[in-house]
Amino acid sequence: MKALARLLFEAGMLKKMPRTGYPFLGSGGESIADHCFRAALLGYLLALEVEGVDETRVALLLLHHDLAEARTGDLNYMNKRYCTVDEDKALEHATRDLPEATATRIKELAQEFNQCRTPEARLAKDADQLDLLIELKEQQDLGNIYAKHWIHYALKRLHTEAAKELAQAVLTTDWTDWWFEKRDDLWVHNHDNGDESVL
């Protein structure tokens, strides 16, 4: 249990470590853990729409796919032109004191994600990109003129039809649509009429 406790403190670093691409975009920002949470949720829900895919495995792949970044940090696309990371070594060191079965499981999940050979891994890879796409759409809606260029390339990295379909839905949805109802009774009159949907 001490080894597991240490790994959980290590995983907690992902809540403090930023994704490094946003300074190049000029706006936005999130931690690695922020990204992993929505990517895992996104992958799970997307997998429910695809016949024959293990949705739980997709979520597990995404929960573990950036665990090594607690040791390596996040390398954005510019960084990767000049730097390489030994993710296998990072995970080996992160898991070396865990029970063998647990360590093997963590490393297998990361390897499956990176190799992208199974249907679950392909969907997980797409969910990883879709999470970025959603962030980019938000930044575009907020006026970042460069986000459209990043969206162009994020779309080209998608492989599955389900991911491409979801991407089009994302791109035609305003980032505030989930909460901003254009209703006078909510925003002008400020009446609480007992409707639990009122903010």
Rank of each mutant, 00 (worst) to 15 (best):
Q115S: 12
N114W: 05
H149T: 13
A124I: 03
Q115Y: 02
T160R: 07
H149I: 07
K125R: 15
H152V: 02
C116H: 13
L133R: 08
T95I: 06
D131W: 06
Y153W: 14
L136N: 03
A162M: 02
R122L: 11
A163P: 02
E112V: 04
L158C: 08
A101F: 03
L130G: 11
A154F: 01
F113V: 03
A124Y: 05
K107I: 09
E161H: 11
T102D: 13
E120F: 05
K156S: 12
L133K: 07
K107S: 07
A154S: 15
K156P: 00
A121P: 12
E112G: 06
P99H: 05
K164N: 09
G143D: 11
A147C: 08
L155F: 08
K164C: 06
A110D: 11
D97H: 14
D128I: 02
N114F: 03
R117W: 01
E138L: 09
T160L: 03
D126L: 01
T104S: 13
N144E: 11
P119F: 10
Q129G: 10
N114S: 14
R157W: 00
I106S: 06
A147M: 05
E108L: 07
R122T: 08
K164I: 01
T160D: 11
D131R: 13
K107C: 12
E138G: 12
D128H: 15
A127Q: 03
L132V: 12
E120M: 06
T104E: 14
I145L: 14
W150Q: 07
R96L: 03
W150C: 04
L133W: 07
E135P: 00
Y146I: 01
F113P: 02
A147F: 03
L98S: 08
W150S: 11
R117Q: 14
L130T: 11
R105Q: 12
K156C: 02
T160Y: 05
Q139F: 00
Q139V: 01
I145F: 07
G143Y: 09
P119M: 07
T118L: 09
Q111S: 13
R117S: 06
E100V: 04
A103E: 08
T160C: 06
P99F: 03
